[in-house]
Simulated assay, not measured.
Amino acid sequence: MCNNFRRITGIILYGGIEMKSIWKKTIVLVSLLSLAFFMSTCSKKEAPSTSARPTYVFKVATAGQPGDSLDSSLKLFLKLVNERTNGAVTGEVYAASQLGNHRDYIDGLQMGSLQVAEITAAVLSTVAPKFSIFDLPYISRSPQALYDILDGEAGDILTKHIMDVAQIRTIGWMVRTPRHVYSAKGPINTVADFRNLKIRTMESAPMLKAMTLFNAKATPIPTAERYMALQTGVVEAAENNVAEIYNCKEFEVTKYLSKTAHLVTPNIICIGTKFLESLPADYQQIIIEAGREAGAFGTQFEINGEKDFEEKLVSEGKMIVNEVPDKSSFTGVLAPLYAEYTPTIGQDLITLFQKQ
């Protein structure tokens, strides 16, 4: 009986040991599975935070009118940036000086309250003196020739200059068609016709000096105030390209268009350097490339539309257009202006421009 008891007891004890081993293995297996599930869950939760990209809303400013070359170029810029950042950058173009004048745009870019703006070379020259080169009459031969040099070494020099002195970067050159004189007083054929002419110019020291050499009475007036100044007789004339004259309806307050073609200048797509450098590196590259494409688009927009706008000024605006084939009387008095600004601009940059 005792032997039977020992045999039975041994089976029970052995079975107990076997059962304990099975439970231990089960507990270990369950623990490992739980740990794996927990790690998998944590991994899934963390993934979005590591892959998420910041989003931005750009304010883009222009003094241009809705649908013109400036407005259209900046809308293309935003479209390209939006597409290439997969929707991370959105924004709006504020046309017709809604966000102020070009001087205000410089302040906004430097302070960061404005992300992108188009600004005339004349206004940029007030903070970056080398940009005065654009306001030397007859320094540029044609819109396409000017765009070509700005898309190369000359543009690189100017971009570095304004980044160094004003913390603004140029990202696109929108070269406008030639600027002519339009007036309520009479046509311009030679420099003698400028005598005592009250003319609106851009905010540009070289242009004011040039008009002094032409014996005109020049007054710098912001774009948004130009029509009223012409209408009220504060000035008798202004100078601009045919697209701008038509889009701003200034044929209503002037009569004569004289094709002096004294300036070919760009409106420049700009961004604040601090803001640009705060963006992801790939976004920075996208913005720079989109700005270049938008500038090229705006330049061709202007070139392609020049003849049509001139015809509209005649047919709709009843303007009288006179060609000015001989410009020697204008260029003949400008030597002192070039001599004065060569030290500021640099002979190297002037030489590049004169190769057009």
Rank of each mutant, 00 (worst) to 15 (best):
I287D: 07
R6L: 12
S49H: 09
E236W: 07
S21K: 10
M211E: 09
L150R: 11
G291E: 02
W23G: 06
Y94W: 05
K75V: 06
R226G: 11
N240T: 13
M211T: 04
T177V: 02
E153V: 07
A166K: 01
T273G: 02
D164F: 02
T170S: 12
R103G: 08
K75D: 14
I11F: 14
L136Y: 04
K79R: 14
V127K: 05
K327L: 05
L146R: 07
L352Q: 15
H180Q: 07
V123T: 15
M39F: 11
N196R: 11
I320Q: 15
L109D: 02
N322H: 13
Y105W: 06
T26K: 12
Y246N: 08
I8R: 14
A96M: 05
D135E: 12
V264E: 02
T344C: 06
V57H: 15
K217R: 15
G108D: 07
K355F: 01
M163Q: 08
L150T: 15
M319Q: 07
L276F: 03
G186M: 10
K327V: 10
A224D: 14
E18I: 15
R176V: 03
F301V: 06
Q347G: 00
A117N: 04
I171F: 05
K307Y: 08
Y147L: 07
T126P: 01
N4Q: 09
I350F: 04
F297H: 03
I199F: 00
L208H: 04
S21D: 11
N4D: 12
D148L: 10
G298C: 00
L99S: 04
L35R: 02
F77G: 11
K209E: 08
T254D: 06
N304K: 14
A154C: 01
S328M: 07
A52H: 12
P178S: 05
Y56M: 13
H262K: 03
T190K: 00
P266L: 10
D71G: 14
Q284R: 15
A63C: 10
P54K: 12
E244S: 15
C270K: 01
R103A: 14
E203T: 05
K249Y: 06
Y338S: 04
T254M: 12
C248K: 12
K209R: 08
I303D: 05
D164G: 05
A154G: 02
I22W: 07
I149A: 08
